[in-house]
Design a protein around this nucleic acid. Structure first.
Lengths: 229, 229
DNA sequence: TTCTATTTATAAAATTTTAATAAAAGTTTA
DNA sequence: TAAACTTTTATTAAAATTTTATAAATAGAA
């Protein structure tokens, strides 16, 4: 459940925003002035802040800065004046979005969802974006360039790693040695295809339990190799 | 140095955007159709994408989806029609921003900067808000720019510190020397990559017990370096 | 089946590529 | 200007890749 803090002194607006957001399944808290808003923002555990720019006490501007000193939580700034928005946008305050009143509640909800989704995308899965291939006991981390067989890490050279990753990334597809050479070595094969065989052997030595009965890279006689899946 | 890819078929617009972004210190590449754009986006190393919605070949919509399958890089979608924007915004395509043509180049630059800053903020990993990185016996205070190995403080020069902090802040990720150079030296590497090697050596001398068997910064032969975690 | 030609596996040597190191030259900073 | 730092260059060392030679497996034909 995502928790949202609205810092807004106009109660009708705050209530309207709150209602719509709650209908969309968010947990919402409202603070009516700057002091309370700032305190709540820093001590509470929120996933997103909606800050009005004009507030009694501490203004939205100041709250935004203070939050950014401590958190990366998404912040949406709201103001009645288009000019203010333009001004603060230029200040590089670290807010994530700016909306001019009046706005439709559904647009607010849409933006809130978009910011929460992005935040999760960037913080949660920063590493695991497609960067890990896992097939049976084999695990390949493509950005770290590390390989594990049944939990045990094995060292791979550049070409070995590239070749294995390419094959594992296209399982069940049969590639000729020419195709593999072109793919990994980035050039036309002019007979120098033996090196593919040698690298396949090296990879198998590290990956397979029994080299003569490969579970991962299969030999297709007279054709090429295929990564079994 | 941040690298930006513009996928836009109208050359005058693309050139205008490119000029403004370059004036702001970005490195910009333009692709004029969907095919080229998609290929470049997936293979190249970019920090942000600007995609036109209407393109010959593969449309911006499709490119956005394909990029999101593989990367979390910020995407700004551009369209001449306000209606299209509203439509795709609702689709949850994973784009980070939407702009309607015509727009002022300075607004484009402002948004680009904002998105890059947020991306860094959210993915800057281990460092983020804490300001202190602590991994095994190594402690780095990023605001004070001080480094301790097993409790003993060591003096680091600017470049050494930046390089170590970047690597330690993105543990397990393998970076090429080109990438490291771009990151720390803020410019395109034109062969002057040897300096990265030398700095790695200097850092290891201070950080490692046994330089020839590094516990922190590992060499990935033929690829680059990785901070072990 | 047996023989032969073809293809792949294996092992080891030779070559090439890449990084570590040391030291000099250049640059910046106090 | 001197000291500290950075970059470049040259040399050495290490590692990875490719080549070569030989063995083994497979498929096809007699």
């Amino acid at each position: 459940m995502n928790r949202i803090l609205i810092v807004e002194d106009e109660e009708t607006i705050a209530d309207l925003e709150k209602d719509y957001l709650e209908l969309s399944g968010f947990e919402v808290k409202v603070a009516n002035d700057g002091e309370a808003g700032l305190k709540e923002a820093l001590n509470g555990d929120y996933n997103l802040f909606i800050l009005d720019l004009m507030l009694p006490g501490v203004d939205g501007f100041e709250i935004c800065r203070k939050i950014r000193d401590e958190k990366n939580t998404p912040i949406i700034m709201v103001s009645a004046k288009k000019d203010d928005i333009d001004k603060i946008r230029g200040l590089g305050l670290g807010a994530d979005d700016y909306m001019t009143k009046p706005f439709s509640p559904s647009e607010l909800v849409a933006r809130v969802k978009a910011h929460l989704a992005r935040y999760d995308r960037l913080t949660g899965s920063a590493v695991s974006k497609n960067n890990v291939i896992e097939i049976r006991g084999l695990k390949i981390d493509t950005t770290a360039r590390r390989v594990w067989i049944n939990g045990e890490e094995k060292a791979f050279t550049t070409k070995e790693f590239d070749l294995l990753t390419f094959l594992a990334g296209h399982p069940n597809h049969v590639y000729t040695k020419e195709e593999l050479f072109r793919e990994i070595w980035d050039m036309e094969s002019i007979g120098d295809i033996a090196t593919v065989t040698v690298h396949i052997k090296k990879i198998r030595e590290k990956v397979e339990m029994d080299t003569s009965n490969p579970q991962y890279i299969e030999t297709i006689w007279g054709v090429g190799y295929r990564f079994k899946m």
